[in-house]
Write a protein that binds this DNA or RNA. Structure first.
Lengths: 214, 214
DNA sequence: CTACATTTGTATCGATCATTACAAATGTAG
DNA sequence: CTACATTTGTAATGATCGATACAAATGTAG
């Protein structure tokens, strides 16, 4: 009993080509014809390998996560909460501007809205994962005394993620690296710069710093 | 010579119904069949009134702008830059959460990505209008001494718009009114609360307030 | 009432959508 | 070399896409 004819194309490379199409056109806007053309294969090969258009899209999302997870981990491993947020936003600014033709974030561009509901839901779930990871990092920072105890880790994470996704949409509109960096820099001003500042008293609260002081 | 058979449906009401579909499904995801069903008309009536699917979408966008422009003007007419930004973000939080089934902003949901390029471009153009209006408001605030002269109106506007659109996407994911309010509140912490604070010296710069001080 | 202009509903257009039958091609295992 | 398992390219599936042809319906103007 033989093992069958071997596959003529590289799965990972095909997924990368498909990613570009989904990224630029969105799930609904990306047709099988355009996908197969970009992947350099015929539709039966696509369906044999991925089952359906949605299956291919999920493979693309997994690949995207694999590519991004290192940046997220690096950011979360920063010694301070401020460092984590700063790293996240700075990296985003760099990737959004440099990566490819102003596509922003695939987890947004891929299908914020859609004919069916499952794709937007799937994307929201994946975006939420990042938000939760960041929230947990902030919670840990509070435990460690790195963030003020009155800070709300969940709200702070939602804020940073909001800026992050907002920057992605700015990138879609053609914002430059410098412009994205400036957004990130302004956004980071809600984080006190150091521990000393954090406990320097009433003046900070008066100036409406990001984190409520005791 | 007669004036022809009068139209049996109300244009504005039909546009409102179409808006709901485009808002929830996006441009690509909204089919003519679903649009006409929601509008309560047949496709020839749609094409007679709007010319094409894209024509209908543009009518929807115009209607959306008409509905929103008052909120924007109210925000820009606030006496201070801080008040303008705060009003914008607070109103957004309210609308995003209360309005309808967590749809976020039509200028994003409607077609951030698309099979064709013209829709995303059109939406980006309309979003940029808001950004420009806000930037001009900040520039005016600087002239009036309401904002520190070293502040960059364009960057500040991009920041606020980023948070705004980010909040819209959070709303899509099901964020509550309270959660959106908290995002807005944190985002506002980059704006000094009053003129006195603005010129209270080195302490503020040390605490990384939003606006650079002289 | 007649002539005209426009909308209406029905029914359909070709194009494209995602998906798949099918047979030739191509590998491995015995 | 033979038998088998899988992929390949070709071609086509029914469904749905956006957009219309057409004639009946319905109004106004004279």
């Amino acid at each position: 009993m033989g093992m069958g004819r071997p596959r003529c194309f590289d799965i990972t490379e095909a997924v990368d080509r498909a990613m570009e199409v989904f990224w630029a056109k969105g799930y609904d806007g990306a047709s099988i014809a355009e996908l197969t053309r970009a992947m350099g294969i015929n539709s039966p090969s696509l369906y044999a390998a991925f089952g359906s258009k949605e299956g291919l899209f999920r493979a693309v999302l997994d690949r995207y996560s694999d590519q991004r997870v290192q940046f997220l981990e690096d950011a979360l491993n920063e010694p301070t909460a401020r460092g984590a947020a700063s790293s996240l936003l700075a990296t985003a600014a760099r990737l959004y501007a440099e990566e490819n033709d102003n596509r922003g974030c695939l987890l947004v561009q891929g299908g914020l809205t859609c004919g069916c509901t499952s794709i937007p839901e799937e994307l929201a779930k994946r975006r939420e994962k990042v938000e939760i990871a960041l929230r947990d990092r902030f919670a840990k920072a509070i435990e460690e005394g790195d963030l003020n105890g009155h800070a709300n880790p969940a709200s702070l994470a939602r804020y940073v993620i909001s800026v992050l996704t907002g920057m992605g949409i700015q990138a879609t509109g053609g914002a430059s690296r410098a412009e994205l960096d400036e957004i990130a820099e302004i956004a980071m001003q809600v984080f006190p710069e150091s521990k000393e500042d954090q406990f320097s008293g009433a003046m900070i609260a008066k100036n409406s710093a990001a984190i409520p002081k005791p």
